[in-house]
Design a protein around this nucleic acid. Structure first.
Length: 865
RNA sequence: GCCCGGAUGGUGGAAUGGUAGACACGAAGGUCUCAAAAACCUUUGCCGCAAGGCGUGCGAGUUCGAGUCUCGCUCCGGGCACCA
């Protein structure tokens, strides 16, 4: 195929194939009992405005899997939707006066067009947004089902409160302890809210992690720790001279073996006892108020300076009524965990040690290392609980034991004495879903003064959001919308009020994967569809969702099963999970009057010597750290610009080429150009190559032809394994390698022409999942009428993919000294003899006989002297 | 603070406990060109003329053999329950 040297024109080719695929309905998912199904899903995007490189990376990976599985004969479901509720839409409303819905819909339209230009094999007929009333109506119906099933509860919990704006703030809206708009110091405030009872399922969610063998181990570990199962002792201190109703102080401890080292008891500033004492102990109420002048996040609590206040109250040590401990209020104790009260053992807990050093309380050692009797000074002694230690101050068990053994002994001992009992607790807290915001799914209940909380009758669903809302004031517009808010009680008809809280957007994203199986149904799911399509065979998304989104989804799938909306097999909805890394980029900045000014990569021109200047002014730019692409540092490259300049395939190819998918990838202009040159080179090679006719069935027999064929079949085997193993960067490297081999295979013999055709056809098919438009264009140029989307994945010939002769390194004392060529299946004796006979080996042996020769067949020989 | 990761040439990275640096980017030299671009060829971990030596964040250890396993650190990143 000699002739035209035209360049590959992505701008014309990509829309052409996108049209052809669409006309063929190539990506429409169909239930087909005759074929195995494959459901591949990438985490759906929040419609923030435009797609970013993180989306390009995520959706390219998913598309590789979808197209590959499709070529392997699976009936593939690969859908896309929009996680469309959330705060940014309300922020846009406040800043620009645009309705959140209008803003969101416009963003979706932009982003849909951008995604389409990427040539993703998505079934767009299944698209939906979580802000569609058709979607959230089903969510409301499930909420009512879950209420009935006892999975929903209402209780009080802490929120960040902006006392000036009079609104609840998200953690993100608390900047250095102050409200982001008002600047007022934020307070913790108690509010009655709706919860899903996820903690009831803690044990189940923990145990089921064992079965998720196709999830990254690190994600399972993070979830395990998050759920935080612990065994400990729950007991009560007797309070000396207790205020009425507080005669006993319940505490929970995972280290009852250290009770002999107790030097204080401490309670949360939100503990009922702290509140009760507030009126009688001077300064205590102020201290608790001050503790509450802090956000609700554990991060803030963890990093804040540890502070305490002595209540003056004392409790009796459970083993000795004469031994009393002071009761402190401490800012680092969470009311949400355990009982909101602890005892402190400073010798074996660093936080407690820091606390007692600050307030001058005693340190009592409980155990020491086996080989030392050193006492605790600046550092608490906290060995792993599986390590044996010497108990020098114990009340149960032998002198030498591990922490685990000691805890068991302590629990048994205490239970025997009637001091508390061994309990299993979980760190996992119930899922608070109430949000005091407009742009979310309304919680379908009505508050009636006489009937209490009344579910909205299912016939009245959906409870849709009112359109006529104002964002000119802080707070939830639903609260001040009388015609929406004020309704008649469905039970007694008396005037009542709608619940104005909306649901956490994590609820929306906890079941969308199930909805994709029947996106237009007037029930949340349809059994036949869910039975066929569930579970998601491959889920792909960012590691930042490792805990919350994935745990909530696991809970929700179980809840959907209990309420009849999913089959039993779907209680773990994600069969396999892959967490991809971020897209990062250099930061560019200049200094302007002492202020750092950030510049977008598009405004910067890089010179060959590594320096950079502003295109507009020529001013030298400082090149900063390589960090996640973010608006604040402006180190953002717009995918649309890349697609317009180079085409979607180049963006996709580069995204896959450099870094392993789970690691961060640095977006570089040079890398993109490299990808572009590679596609151009292959295109040129194709047009310069002499190929056998398309119907030729000749196989190469000459040495050069066989060598090329071997390279082709090795590449097919390798790329297949790489895609299966999510090693897309290695697949790309192998394809590069094959292209290099093809370029050198220049012979004019007929069998070479045949081998070359085989090679070009193979490389087009191997590249199809990654650069689909380019591959189709190659395939068409090779004379095929049927497009690649309808062509099977190539098979390899095992005989050709295998080497008969291997090169084995020979080491002497672990250092490589020679290389021998041996038959693949040569025996160890033969290999050893060949190795010892090698002159370089003999030289390094210096006449000495080897002490030992290790032969690892097919891998290495090590001669030890 | 707590939980989870990561660290390999100038750069991104490759390497079932078995030849460290595949593949790519960049750089240097060359070919072609009036010239440039593009393309193509060669070289490219560091030290050394070579023989050889040194090298996978730091410090120990296990092993015939460690980038890979174990222990102790350092730095960077993700999450911490109302960002999505």
């Amino acid at each position: 195929m000699s002739g035209s040297m035209s360049r590959y024109n992505a701008r014309a080719v990509e829309p052409k194939w996108q049209r052809i695929w669409e006309q063929r309905g190539a990506f429409r998912a169909r239930r087909d009992p005759a074929r195995p199904k494959y459901y591949v899903l990438e985490m759906f995007p929040y419609p923030s405005g435009r797609i970013h490189m993180g989306h390009v990376r995520n959706y390219t990976m998913g598309d590789v899997v979808a197209r590959y599985k499709s070529a392997r004969g699976f009936s593939v479901l690969h859908p896309m939707g929009w996680d469309a509720f959330g705060m940014p839409a309300e922020n846009a409303a406040m800043e620009r006066g645009v309705h959140p819905g209008t803003w969101t819909r416009a963003n979706i339209d932009t982003m849909r067009a951008q995604l389409k230009s990427m040539g993703l094999s998505l079934d767009w007929e299944r698209e939906f947004a979580t802000c569609d009333p058709e979607y959230y109506a089903q969510q409301q119906a499930m909420f009512l089902d879950m209420m009935e099933a006892g999975l929903v509860t209402r209780k009080s919990s802490m929120v960040n409160w902006d006392p000036v704006d009079g609104t609840v703030l998200a953690n993100e809206q608390v900047i250095d302890g102050r409200g982001w708009r008002s600047g007022a110091p934020v307070e913790r405030r108690e509010l009655t809210q709706w919860f899903f009872r996820i903690s009831d399922m803690a044990g189940e969610l923990l145990d089921a992690l064992e079965g998720l063998t196709n999830w990254p181990e690190k994600v399972r570990l993070m979830q395990r720790n998050w759920i935080g199962k612990s065994r400990g002792l729950q007991f009560a201190f007797d309070v000396v001279a207790a205020p009425a109703g507080f005669e006993r102080l319940e505490v929970y401890t995972t280290r009852p073996d250290t009770l002999m080292g107790a030097s204080f008891a401490a309670i949360s500033p939100d503990h009922p006892l702290a509140r009760a004492l507030g009126s009688t102990v001077p300064g205590l109420a102020d201290f608790c108020d001050e503790c509450r002048r802090m956000g609700t996040s554990e991060e803030e609590l963890g990093t804040a300076e540890k502070r305490g206040f002595d209540t003056g109250l004392r409790v009796r040590h459970p083993f000795d009524p004469g031994w009393t401990l002071p009761v402190w209020v401490a800012n680092f104790i969470l009311m949400e965990y355990g009982t909101g009260a602890i005892f402190g053992c400073p010798a074996h807990d660093q936080r407690d040690l820091d606390f007692v050093r600050k307030y001058g309380l005693p340190v009592i050692d409980v155990y020491t290392p086996l080989d030392s009797d050193a006492r605790v000074a600046d550092l608490a002694y906290v060995p792993p609980k599986t390590e044996k230690v010497r108990y020098i101050n114990r009340f149960a068990g032998p002198e030498v034991m591990t922490g685990d053994e000691a805890v068991d002994a302590a629990i048994a001992h205490c239970e025997g004495l009637g001091i508390g009992q061994g309990v299993t607790r979980f760190r996992l807290r119930d899922w608070g879903i109430s949000r005091q915001r407009y742009w979310g799914c309304p919680i379908p209940v009505i508050h009636c003064p006489s009937c209490g909380v009344v579910p909205v009758p299912k016939a009245d669903l959906p409870v849709t959001l009112p359109e006529d809302v104002e964002f000119d004031r802080p707070g939830n517009p639903l609260d001040r919308h009388p015609t929406w808010r004020d309704v008649a009680c469905p039970e007694c008809g008396a005037p009542a009020r709608r619940e104005t809280d909306t649901m956490d957007t994590f609820v929306d994203s906890s079941w969308y994967y199930a909805r994709f199986t029947a996106p237009r149904a007037d029930t949340p799911t349809v059994a036949t569809e869910a039975d066929y399509w569930m579970n998601v065979d491959q889920y792909i998304g960012g590691i930042e969702h490792a805990i919350l989104h994935l745990l909530y989804s696991r809970f929700f799938a179980r809840a959907m099963h209990r309420t009849g909306h999913l089959p039993a097999k779907a209680i773990e909805p994600f069969e396999a999970l892959f967490t991809q890394g971020m897209v990062v980029h250099e930061c560019y900045s200049t200094e302007n009057g002492g202020r750092r000014v950030w510049h977008a990569p598009a405004e910067v021109e890089k010179a060959a010597d590594g320096t950079a200047r502003l295109r507009a002014t020529g001013e030298t730019v400082e090149i900063g750290a390589v960090t996640k692409m973010s608006k604040s540092k402006k180190n953002v490259v717009d995918p649309e610009d890349i697609i317009e300049t180079y085409g979607a395939d180049v963006a996709r190819w580069f995204m896959l080429s450099d870094s392993p998918p789970e690691r961060d990838v640095e977006w570089t202009e040079a890398g993109v150009e490299g990808a572009w040159r590679f596609l151009q080179r292959l295109w040129r090679m194709l047009h310069e190559a002499e190929l056998a006719a398309p119907d030729s069935s000749m196989n190469g027999t000459g040495e050069a032809a066989v060598a090329l064929r071997k390279a082709v079949h090795k590449a097919i085997a390798g790329v297949t394994a790489d895609i299966e193993g999510f090693a897309f960067n290695k697949a790309v490297a192998r394809i590069h390698d094959l292209a290099n081999t093809m370029q050198r295979a220049t012979g004019g013999e007929p069998d070479m022409a045949a081998a070359r055709r085989e090679a070009f056809e193979a490389i087009a098919r191997l590249m199809a999942p990654m650069t689909p438009h380019f591959a189709e264009e190659m395939w068409e140029a090779l004379g095929h009428a049927t497009p690649l989307v309808a062509t099977a994945w190539p098979e390899f010939d095992p005989a050709l993919a295998r080497d008969d002769v291997v090169l084995m390194p020979v080491q002497v004392n672990g250092r490589r000294r020679a290389e021998i060529e041996v038959a693949r299946d040569a025996g160890s004796g033969t290999v050893e003899a060949m190795a010892l006979a090698h002159p370089d080996v003999a030289r390094h042996l210096g006449g000495q006989p080897p002490r030992k020769v290790i032969v690892v067949p097919g891998r290495i020989v090590n001669v030890v002297v």
